[in-house]
Simulated assay, not measured.
Amino acid sequence: MSAKKPAEQSPESIARSNRQRLAAEEGVRAMADAEKQSVDIRKNMARLRELREAKEAADATLQASSPATIPAKRKKKLPR
């Protein structure tokens, strides 16, 4: 068995390793961006939920404070 000498890298292997490194860096950035977007979405959903609940509470208070309306009775038609 002969010992292998450390060979110089070919231009193709250098290019391949650069592509792999760039892809890994882009993947990390994409994951961070996706996580940030999901946090922003959850914050917006919480804000909208608070607004909806406040509106529902205000509507319920308004409805409870106003007098209940009694529906008018329908008049019967007289036979001709």
Rank of each mutant, 00 (worst) to 15 (best):
residue 50 E to I: 03
residue 59 D to I: 03
residue 56 E to V: 00
residue 1 M to F: 14
residue 30 A to W: 02
residue 42 R to L: 03
residue 38 S to W: 04
residue 44 N to V: 05
residue 51 L to W: 04
residue 6 P to Y: 07
residue 5 K to Q: 10
residue 60 A to V: 00
residue 11 P to Q: 03
residue 14 I to F: 11
residue 17 S to W: 13
residue 34 A to R: 10
residue 50 E to H: 12
residue 69 T to L: 15
residue 79 P to Y: 03
residue 49 R to M: 14
residue 20 Q to C: 07
residue 8 E to I: 06
residue 57 A to Y: 00
residue 18 N to P: 01
residue 36 K to H: 10
residue 54 A to Q: 06
residue 40 D to Y: 06
residue 75 K to Y: 08
residue 3 A to M: 13
residue 4 K to V: 12
residue 12 E to R: 12
residue 78 L to V: 02
residue 71 P to A: 15
residue 22 L to N: 13
residue 76 K to N: 01
residue 38 S to P: 01
residue 55 K to D: 06
residue 55 K to W: 05
residue 78 L to F: 01
residue 39 V to T: 04
residue 77 K to W: 02
residue 67 P to K: 08
residue 27 G to R: 12
residue 28 V to L: 13
residue 60 A to F: 01
residue 10 S to T: 15
residue 52 R to K: 12
residue 45 M to C: 09
residue 24 A to H: 09
residue 15 A to D: 08
residue 40 D to V: 03
residue 52 R to C: 06
residue 74 R to Q: 15
residue 17 S to E: 12
residue 10 S to W: 03
residue 63 Q to Y: 05
residue 19 R to T: 07
residue 75 K to F: 12
residue 74 R to H: 13
residue 12 E to F: 12
residue 27 G to H: 08
residue 56 E to R: 03
residue 44 N to P: 01
residue 21 R to M: 11
residue 67 P to S: 10
residue 3 A to V: 13
residue 39 V to D: 01
residue 40 D to Q: 10
residue 30 A to S: 04
residue 13 S to E: 15
residue 30 A to D: 02
residue 2 S to D: 11
residue 53 E to L: 12
residue 54 A to P: 01
residue 21 R to K: 14
residue 21 R to Y: 10
residue 44 N to G: 08
residue 36 K to W: 07
residue 4 K to G: 06
residue 75 K to V: 10
residue 20 Q to S: 13
residue 32 A to D: 07
residue 18 N to T: 08
residue 26 E to T: 09
residue 29 R to T: 02
residue 17 S to L: 13
residue 61 T to C: 03
residue 21 R to G: 07
residue 60 A to K: 02
residue 20 Q to G: 06
residue 11 P to G: 03
residue 11 P to E: 03
residue 39 V to H: 07
residue 80 R to W: 02
residue 48 L to H: 09
residue 68 A to E: 15
residue 78 L to N: 02
residue 23 A to M: 04
residue 30 A to R: 09
residue 37 Q to W: 08
residue 71 P to G: 12
residue 3 A to E: 10
residue 57 A to S: 05
residue 13 S to L: 10
residue 68 A to K: 15
residue 60 A to L: 02
residue 55 K to H: 07
residue 3 A to D: 11
residue 80 R to V: 02
residue 52 R to L: 09
residue 73 K to A: 15
residue 46 A to P: 04
residue 70 I to P: 15
residue 80 R to L: 02
residue 71 P to D: 15
residue 61 T to D: 07
residue 14 I to S: 05
residue 63 Q to D: 05
residue 2 S to M: 09
residue 12 E to W: 07
residue 3 A to R: 14
residue 24 A to P: 02
residue 2 S to H: 11
residue 14 I to V: 13
residue 18 N to A: 11
